[in-house]
Simulated assay, not measured.
Amino acid sequence: MSRLPEPPVNTPEGEAYEARFDALVSEEYRLLSELAAMLAHTAQGQRIKAELILKLLPEHMAHSVIDEYDSNIKLVLSLARDLVRETAA
């Protein structure tokens, strides 16, 4: 949805767009929170979580006020890359 052109602000279309966007962000947050609470007992489950981290975290950080990845973020991304490589081998 964020790749589509936004309708003009302060119009019914713009308000509907914002409401839909907010609902999607809330749903994503809820689903990711549920996923984070689940234990990954298999290599496949760990790989799926790692792939999601590698896909979503850089995009999230692009919209963050933090200019650079701090060492904690770098460590999480490194671990995710290790898990993806490990299960691919």
Rank of each mutant, 00 (worst) to 15 (best):
M1E: 04
R3C: 06
R3G: 09
L4P: 04
E6A: 15
E6I: 14
E6N: 14
E6H: 15
P8H: 02
T11K: 12
T11Q: 13
P12T: 14
P12M: 15
P12D: 15
P12C: 13
E13W: 12
G14S: 07
E15W: 04
A16Y: 09
Y17C: 08
E18K: 15
A19K: 12
A19P: 07
R20H: 09
F21M: 13
D22N: 12
D22R: 14
A23E: 09
A23P: 03
A23C: 05
L24F: 03
L24Y: 04
L24H: 03
V25T: 02
V25S: 00
V25W: 03
S26H: 02
S26L: 01
S26M: 03
E27W: 01
E28L: 03
E28F: 02
E28Q: 04
Y29F: 01
R30I: 00
R30L: 00
L31G: 00
L31V: 04
L32V: 01
L32S: 02
S33A: 04
S33I: 00
S33R: 04
S33K: 02
E34P: 00
E34W: 00
E34H: 00
L35C: 00
L35Y: 03
L35P: 00
A36C: 04
A36K: 05
A36G: 07
A37S: 13
A37W: 02
M38P: 01
A40L: 08
H41K: 05
H41A: 09
H41S: 07
T42P: 08
T42N: 09
A43L: 13
A43K: 10
Q44S: 10
G45T: 12
Q46C: 06
R47D: 08
I48P: 01
K49N: 09
E51V: 01
E51F: 01
L52R: 03
L54D: 01
K55G: 05
L56Y: 01
L56D: 02
L56E: 01
L57V: 06
P58R: 03
P58A: 02
E59F: 02
E59R: 04
H60C: 13
M61Y: 03
M61E: 10
M61T: 06
A62M: 05
A62F: 04
A62E: 10
H63Q: 07
S64V: 10
S64Y: 06
S64M: 06
S64A: 12
V65Y: 09
I66R: 11
I66A: 10
I66M: 07
I66F: 11
D67K: 14
E68Q: 07
Y69F: 14
Y69V: 10
D70H: 09
D70T: 09
D70V: 09
N72Q: 13
N72D: 11
I73L: 14
I73S: 11
I73H: 12
I73G: 08
K74A: 11
L75P: 05
L75I: 07
L75Y: 08
V76I: 15
L77F: 13
L77M: 15
S78K: 13
S78F: 10
S78C: 12
S78P: 05
L79M: 10
L79I: 11
A80C: 13
A80G: 10
R81F: 05
R81G: 04
R81V: 06
R81L: 09
R81P: 04
D82K: 03
L83C: 05
L83H: 02
V84F: 03
V84H: 06
E86Q: 08
T87A: 12
A89E: 12
